[in-house]
């Protein structure tokens, strides 16, 4: 369970171009459910996602993950939490160019010191599961948008995290691929993972599999269905 209390994030604080991206958010995200953060661009949902995912620290407020305060942790411990808890699927996928799909998938596991052979097998199994077995050795810049996203999802899953976080997952996908993504998201939730998605795409926000819809505007939550 992830709990947010009075969380704010201010960029360039104290300067003339100071921006309040998130202004006082209280939110509880339950385990094992698929939650969607909805809102127009600039509403602060991506920033909120980076705060929840421990990619950045809030300016004020508290974030707890399973009761543990993470908002005040120094960078090193934050990394530890991040790596244990979250798998990220970024809007632009953020794959490392020049490396093969397989090399990208194993990346999050490298600093953990797991044995090479089982790691490669597990990564390949994930790619195979997403229908990318024949793409495993291809450099990622040669993949299509949908393939790249599935590589990114496989990478998010390699360390078997409890929470999968996806930022605008359908921004660069066509209609058919959206359905494919939703199927994967549902499968993940069914396997017991917490799934957290930001989107302003009605194909996502109105999908039947969404457990909870949280609407944001101007850095605040305006509507949160239970």
């Amino acid at each position: 369970m992830i709990t947010l209390e009075g969380v704010t994030k201010v960029f360039d604080q104290g300067r003339h171009n100071q921006v309040t991206a998130v202004g006082g958010v209280d939110l509880v995200i339950a385990d094992g459910r698929l939650t969607v953060l909805r809102g127009p661009s600039g509403s602060g949902k991506t920033t909120l996602l980076t705060l929840i995912g421990c990619l950045a620290r809030p300016t004020t407020g508290r974030i707890r993950i399973d009761g543990e305060m993470v908002s005040g942790l120094p960078e090193r411990f934050l990394t530890e939490v991040r790596r244990r808890t979250f798998g990220f699927v970024f809007q632009k996928f953020n794959l490392i160019r020049g490396l093969s799909a397989l090399d990208n998938v194993v990346l999050p596991a490298l600093p953990l010191g797991v044995a090479h052979r089982p790691l490669v097998e597990r990564a390949f199994a994930l790619l195979d599961h997403f229908g990318l077995a024949d793409r495993a050795e291809l450099a990622v810049e040669n993949l299509s948008g949908g393939e790249a996203q599935r590589v990114a999802i496989a990478r998010a899953l390699i360390n078997d995290p409890a929470v999968i976080v996806a930022d605008e997952p359908t921004a660069s996908l066509d209609g058919a691929r959206v359905g494919q993504f939703l199927a994967i998201a549902e499968e993940l939730r069914r396997s017991g993972k917490t799934v957290l998605i930001t989107s302003h795409d009605p194909r996502i926000t109105e999908a039947a599999i969404v457990d909870r819809l949280v609407t944001m505007a101007d850095g605040r939550i305006v509507e949160a269905a239970p």
Binding site: V120, F124, D128
Partner: peptide, 12 residues
């Protein structure tokens, strides 16, 4: 789902 992981790669 029977594809095998590539094995012949030399590690860096």
């Amino acid at each position: 789902m029977t594809a095998r992981a590539p094995s012949g790669r030399l590690r860096g």
